[in-house]
């Protein structure tokens, strides 16, 4: 037991890192669901495309020998990636979802799955084009790490080390989440989004351009998903065209856990899932005396998900906030 406690700071740090990524990707799922009641399964692939677009931009900066301070490079690439993946999201909505808006619920779901296969193979094609190998390893902008002396606060804790990258990742995702929250709750466009989420037809009668609002939702969801993709690539350095699948699935789970359609719920759902997963991976075999190993971390995390959903089917935040989006 003392092992679990002393490793807790590091587990929390790693869990929050993973959870922050889940949370931001979950936002994309939850926003689109809130407004269209469509599960946009291509969102994981948009995240993956963002990882490749960002890494591609970074590598081509290196090829052209353009040297800038790391901060400027990071912000520039993040914005460019967000813009491109945002446009990608709008394009997908126009091509694959808008013509099917009046069709039964299952049909756009199938086209979402189709889009995600197309994106996977497109990215694979371009990634393989140059090197013949689609596992891409990018350069890291911020090397180095910081040690947080938890042991000096409480004696039983071990110190936790955090990569500078991780700090940036957590910082930026928090900024994104706060900005999004303000945007949805305090601005005119945010109000329009909430109105469309509640009732499309009535919102249209109140002179809200529904199509524009839906496009905007896709743009924002995809832009932050893509930007997170680049942060992910920076964090783990190695990416392949299939990272979107497992991650998308877990982010979707996080969205459901927090109450799908609810933005704050998605954020907390992501963080909780990340911490649960890392905690299980680090401690399962200690807790069960080696019977159940860390390979069952997903089983553990999803068991908790099922338990939550049995007792609170609307998700953790499903009821406390009535409005969707």
């Amino acid at each position: 037991m003392s092992n679990i406690l002393s490793a807790l700071p590091q587990v929390l740090v790693d869990g929050l890192t993973l959870g922050a990524i889940y949370a931001v990707v979950a936002l994309g799922y939850t926003m689109v669901y809130g407004i269209l009641e469509l599960i946009n399964f291509a969102h994981g692939e948009i995240f993956m495309s963002g990882a490749f677009i960002g890494t591609g931009l970074l590598l081509s900066l290196g090829v052209f020998g353009i040297a800038m301070p790391a901060w400027i490079t990071l912000i520039l690439i993040l914005l460019l990636t967000a813009l491109l993946t945002g446009l990608l999201g709008i394009g997908i909505e126009r091509l694959a979802y808008r013509p099917l808006r009046k069709a039964p619920r299952l049909i756009p779901l199938i086209s979402a799955i189709g889009i995600s296969f197309i994106l996977q193979d497109l990215v694979r094609f371009f990634a393989e084009f140059k090197t013949g190998n689609y596992i891409v390893t990018g350069t890291t902008l911020f090397e180095g790490k910081v040690t947080i002396p938890f042991s000096s606060i409480i004696g039983t804790f071990h110190n936790a080390t955090i990569k500078n990258n991780t700090l940036i990742l957590i910082g930026i995702t928090i900024i994104i989440m706060i900005l999004l929250d303000i945007f949805v709750n305090r601005t005119k466009w945010g109000t329009a989004m909430r109105a469309v989420a509640q009732d499309q037809e009535t919102a249209a009668l109140m002179s809200i351009n529904v199509n524009k609002v839906i496009s905007l939702t896709f743009f924002i969801g995809s832009a932050i998903g893509g930007a997170t993709g680049f942060l992910f690539a920076q964090q783990y350095a190695t990416i392949d065209p299939y990272i979107g699948f497992i991650l998308g699935l877990k982010a979707f789970t996080a969205a459901v856990l927090g109450g799908i359609g609810n933005i704050r719920g998605a954020m907390f759902g992501g963080l909780i899932l990340g911490v649960l997963e890392v905690f299980a991976a680090a401690n399962l075999s200690t807790i069960t005396g080696g019977v159940i190993g860390s390979e069952y971390k997903d089983v553990f995390a999803f068991t908790i998900l099922i338990l939550v959903l049995i007792f609170k089917p609307e998700g953790l935040f499903g009821k406390s906030v009535k409005e969707k989006v």
């Binding site: 590091q10 890192t17 993973l18 992910f232 299980a280 680090a282 200690t286 860390s294 971390k297």
Partner: peptide, 10 residues
């Protein structure tokens, strides 16, 4: 998967 920090903490 790309994040193995759980196992590595162990």
């Amino acid at each position: 998967e790309k994040d193995f920090s759980g196992v590595l903490n162990q």
